[in-house]
Protein backbone atom coordinates (compact mmCIF):
# COMPACT_ATOMS: atom_id res chain seq x y z
CA UNK A 1 0.00 0.00 0.00
CA UNK A 2 2.70 2.42 1.04
CA UNK A 3 4.59 1.49 -2.10
CA UNK A 4 1.61 2.55 -4.23
CA UNK A 5 1.34 5.88 -2.44
CA UNK A 6 5.05 6.44 -2.91
CA UNK A 7 4.88 5.63 -6.61
CA UNK A 8 1.90 7.88 -6.99
CA UNK A 9 3.73 10.74 -5.29
CA UNK A 10 6.72 10.28 -7.57
CA UNK A 11 4.49 10.23 -10.63
CA UNK A 12 2.73 13.37 -9.47
CA UNK A 13 6.01 15.15 -8.94
CA UNK A 14 7.15 14.08 -12.39
CA UNK A 15 3.93 15.20 -13.97
CA UNK A 16 4.26 18.54 -12.23
CA UNK A 17 7.81 19.02 -13.42
CA UNK A 18 6.81 18.07 -16.96
CA UNK A 19 3.86 20.42 -17.12
CA UNK A 20 5.52 23.32 -15.38
CA UNK A 21 8.84 23.03 -17.17
CA UNK A 22 7.16 23.89 -20.45
CA UNK A 23 6.13 27.29 -19.27
CA UNK A 24 9.50 28.47 -17.97
CA UNK A 25 9.62 32.28 -18.13
CA UNK A 26 11.87 33.87 -20.71
CA UNK A 27 14.71 36.11 -19.57
CA UNK A 28 13.52 39.68 -19.00
CA UNK A 29 13.88 41.67 -22.19
CA UNK A 30 16.62 44.25 -22.33
CA UNK A 31 14.32 46.19 -24.56
CA UNK A 32 14.23 49.96 -24.11
CA UNK A 33 10.45 49.95 -23.60
CA UNK A 34 10.90 47.40 -20.81
CA UNK A 35 13.58 49.53 -19.16
CA UNK A 36 11.34 52.56 -19.44
CA UNK A 37 8.51 50.81 -17.61
CA UNK A 38 10.85 49.36 -15.00
CA UNK A 39 12.31 52.78 -14.26
CA UNK A 40 8.85 54.32 -14.02
CA UNK A 41 7.72 51.60 -11.63
CA UNK A 42 10.73 52.04 -9.39
CA UNK A 43 10.39 55.82 -9.49
CA UNK A 44 6.70 55.62 -8.63
CA UNK A 45 7.31 53.30 -5.69
CA UNK A 46 10.08 55.55 -4.39
CA UNK A 47 8.23 58.84 -4.82
CA UNK A 48 4.67 57.84 -3.99
CA UNK A 49 5.18 55.47 -1.10
CA UNK A 50 7.65 57.61 0.82
CA UNK A 51 6.81 57.68 4.50
CA UNK A 52 5.15 60.75 5.89
CA UNK A 53 4.09 62.43 2.66
CA UNK A 54 0.68 64.03 2.71
CA UNK A 55 -2.13 62.98 0.38
CA UNK A 56 -1.78 66.27 -1.50
CA UNK A 57 1.96 65.72 -1.92
CA UNK A 58 1.33 62.27 -3.24
CA UNK A 59 -1.20 63.58 -5.73
CA UNK A 60 1.20 66.24 -6.99
CA UNK A 61 3.99 63.74 -7.44
CA UNK A 62 1.63 61.34 -9.14
CA UNK A 63 0.46 64.07 -11.53
CA UNK A 64 4.06 64.88 -12.38
CA UNK A 65 4.88 61.25 -13.21
CA UNK A 66 1.61 60.90 -15.13
CA UNK A 67 2.39 63.87 -17.37
CA UNK A 68 5.95 62.72 -17.85
CA UNK A 69 5.30 59.09 -18.74
CA UNK A 70 1.74 58.80 -20.04
CA UNK A 71 0.16 60.14 -23.20
CA UNK A 72 -2.79 61.51 -21.25
CA UNK A 73 -4.10 63.47 -24.24
CA UNK A 74 -4.23 60.40 -26.41
CA UNK A 75 -5.83 58.30 -23.70
CA UNK A 76 -8.34 61.07 -23.08
CA UNK A 77 -9.34 61.09 -26.73
CA UNK A 78 -9.51 57.29 -26.90
CA UNK A 79 -11.72 57.20 -23.84
CA UNK A 80 -14.22 59.55 -25.48
CA UNK A 81 -14.26 57.36 -28.56
CA UNK A 82 -16.60 58.57 -31.23
CA UNK A 83 -17.82 61.37 -29.02
CA UNK A 84 -14.44 63.12 -29.23
CA UNK A 85 -15.58 64.49 -32.61
CA UNK A 86 -18.23 66.49 -30.85
CA UNK A 87 -15.71 68.58 -28.91
CA UNK A 88 -14.90 72.21 -29.60
CA UNK A 89 -11.37 73.40 -28.68
CA UNK A 90 -12.38 75.20 -25.48
CA UNK A 91 -14.34 72.23 -24.23
CA UNK A 92 -11.52 69.88 -25.28
CA UNK A 93 -9.04 71.69 -23.04
CA UNK A 94 -11.41 71.66 -20.10
CA UNK A 95 -12.14 67.99 -20.73
CA UNK A 96 -8.46 67.05 -20.78
CA UNK A 97 -7.84 68.84 -17.47
CA UNK A 98 -10.83 67.18 -15.84
CA UNK A 99 -9.79 63.80 -17.24
CA UNK A 100 -6.35 64.20 -15.72
CA UNK A 101 -7.94 65.14 -12.38
CA UNK A 102 -10.03 61.99 -12.53
CA UNK A 103 -6.98 59.77 -13.11
CA UNK A 104 -5.13 61.43 -10.24
CA UNK A 105 -8.14 61.07 -7.94
CA UNK A 106 -8.64 57.43 -8.91
CA UNK A 107 -5.10 56.10 -8.73
CA UNK A 108 -2.83 58.29 -6.56
CA UNK A 109 -4.31 57.15 -3.25
CA UNK A 110 -3.75 53.48 -4.13
CA UNK A 111 -0.03 53.97 -3.58
CA UNK A 112 -0.75 54.73 0.07
CA UNK A 113 -1.55 51.03 0.49
CA UNK A 114 1.85 49.93 -0.74
CA UNK A 115 3.23 47.09 1.39
CA UNK A 116 6.56 46.04 -0.04
CA UNK A 117 5.40 44.52 -3.34
CA UNK A 118 8.12 44.02 -5.90
CA UNK A 119 7.81 44.98 -9.52
CA UNK A 120 9.25 42.61 -12.10
CA UNK A 121 9.39 42.90 -15.90
CA UNK A 122 8.65 39.52 -17.50
CA UNK A 123 9.14 40.24 -21.18
CA UNK A 124 8.51 42.76 -23.90
CA UNK A 125 6.47 42.05 -27.01
CA UNK A 126 7.09 44.28 -30.01
CA UNK A 127 4.13 44.73 -32.28
CA UNK A 128 4.94 44.23 -35.93
CA UNK A 129 4.48 47.29 -38.06
CA UNK A 130 3.33 49.35 -35.09
CA UNK A 131 5.03 51.78 -32.83
CA UNK A 132 3.62 50.12 -29.76
CA UNK A 133 5.14 47.52 -27.50
CA UNK A 134 3.50 45.56 -24.73
CA UNK A 135 5.60 45.27 -21.60
CA UNK A 136 4.44 42.32 -19.50
CA UNK A 137 5.17 42.69 -15.83
CA UNK A 138 4.18 41.29 -12.47
CA UNK A 139 3.58 42.83 -9.11
CA UNK A 140 4.53 40.34 -6.42
CA UNK A 141 3.26 40.74 -2.87
CA UNK A 142 5.91 40.61 -0.16
CA UNK A 143 4.04 37.81 1.67
CA UNK A 144 4.36 35.44 -1.29
CA UNK A 145 0.71 35.62 -2.28
CA UNK A 146 -0.35 35.37 -5.91
CA UNK A 147 1.32 37.85 -8.26
CA UNK A 148 -0.74 40.37 -10.19
CA UNK A 149 -0.33 40.49 -13.94
CA UNK A 150 0.18 44.00 -15.30
CA UNK A 151 0.69 44.73 -19.01
CA UNK A 152 1.76 48.14 -20.23
CA UNK A 153 1.09 49.33 -23.73
CA UNK A 154 3.93 51.72 -24.59
CA UNK A 155 3.93 53.98 -27.60
CA UNK A 156 7.29 54.89 -29.08
CA UNK A 157 7.33 58.43 -30.41
CA UNK A 158 10.82 58.53 -31.93
CA UNK A 159 12.49 57.18 -28.83
CA UNK A 160 10.21 59.11 -26.50
CA UNK A 161 8.16 56.49 -24.68
CA UNK A 162 4.65 57.14 -23.48
CA UNK A 163 2.25 54.72 -21.87
CA UNK A 164 -1.16 54.56 -23.53
CA UNK A 165 -2.78 51.75 -21.58
CA UNK A 166 -2.35 49.55 -18.53
CA UNK A 167 -3.98 46.14 -18.33
CA UNK A 168 -4.33 44.59 -14.90
CA UNK A 169 -5.14 40.87 -15.01
CA UNK A 170 -6.36 41.42 -18.54
CA UNK A 171 -8.55 44.40 -17.68
CA UNK A 172 -7.69 47.50 -19.69
CA UNK A 173 -7.94 50.73 -17.73
CA UNK A 174 -8.54 52.70 -20.94
CA UNK A 175 -11.30 50.44 -22.19
CA UNK A 176 -13.02 50.37 -18.79
CA UNK A 177 -12.92 54.16 -18.65
CA UNK A 178 -14.23 54.45 -22.19
CA UNK A 179 -17.11 52.08 -21.54
CA UNK A 180 -18.01 54.09 -18.49
CA UNK A 181 -17.85 57.52 -20.18
CA UNK A 182 -19.90 56.21 -23.09
CA UNK A 183 -22.50 54.88 -20.65
CA UNK A 184 -22.77 58.23 -18.88
CA UNK A 185 -23.35 60.04 -22.18
CA UNK A 186 -25.82 57.45 -23.43
CA UNK A 187 -27.77 57.44 -20.20
CA UNK A 188 -28.34 61.15 -20.74
CA UNK A 189 -29.64 60.80 -24.30
CA UNK A 190 -26.29 61.36 -25.97
CA UNK A 191 -25.68 64.73 -24.32
CA UNK A 192 -21.94 65.21 -24.09
CA UNK A 193 -22.43 67.91 -21.48
CA UNK A 194 -23.76 65.35 -19.04
CA UNK A 195 -20.30 63.77 -18.94
CA UNK A 196 -18.66 67.17 -18.50
CA UNK A 197 -21.04 67.93 -15.63
CA UNK A 198 -20.23 64.61 -13.95
CA UNK A 199 -16.49 65.20 -14.36
CA UNK A 200 -16.73 68.75 -12.99
CA UNK A 201 -18.63 67.49 -9.98
CA UNK A 202 -16.09 64.73 -9.36
CA UNK A 203 -13.15 67.10 -9.69
CA UNK A 204 -14.73 69.68 -7.36
CA UNK A 205 -15.53 67.11 -4.68
CA UNK A 206 -11.98 65.84 -4.87
CA UNK A 207 -10.50 69.29 -4.42
CA UNK A 208 -12.76 70.19 -1.51
CA UNK A 209 -11.11 67.74 0.84
Amino acid sequence: MLEIVRKFAVCTALLLVLTIGQGAPAAPGQDAAGRFVKQLGDKAIEALTAKGISAADRENRFRFLLRQSFDVKRIGRFVLGRYSRKLNPALATEYQNLFEDLIVATYAARFAEYSGQSFVIKRVAKLKGRRDSIVLSEIRPADGGPAIRVDWQVHDKNGDYKIVDIRIEGVSMSITQRDEFTAVIRKNNGKFNSLMAALRKKSASQKSH
Partner: peptide, 17 residues
Protein backbone atom coordinates in the same frame (compact mmCIF):
# COMPACT_ATOMS: atom_id res chain seq x y z
CA UNK B 1 -1.89 39.40 -24.08
CA UNK B 2 0.84 40.71 -26.34
CA UNK B 3 -1.10 40.07 -29.51
CA UNK B 4 -4.07 42.04 -28.32
CA UNK B 5 -3.88 45.79 -28.46
CA UNK B 6 -6.37 48.12 -26.94
CA UNK B 7 -8.04 48.56 -30.32
CA UNK B 8 -8.43 52.21 -31.15
CA UNK B 9 -5.42 53.24 -29.13
CA UNK B 10 -3.28 52.00 -31.96
CA UNK B 11 -5.64 52.07 -34.91
CA UNK B 12 -7.25 55.45 -34.48
CA UNK B 13 -4.90 57.89 -36.14
CA UNK B 14 -4.43 61.24 -34.59
CA UNK B 15 -2.17 64.21 -35.29
CA UNK B 16 0.89 63.26 -33.28
CA UNK B 17 0.83 59.69 -34.50
Amino acid sequence: QDTILSPSLSLEDDDDI
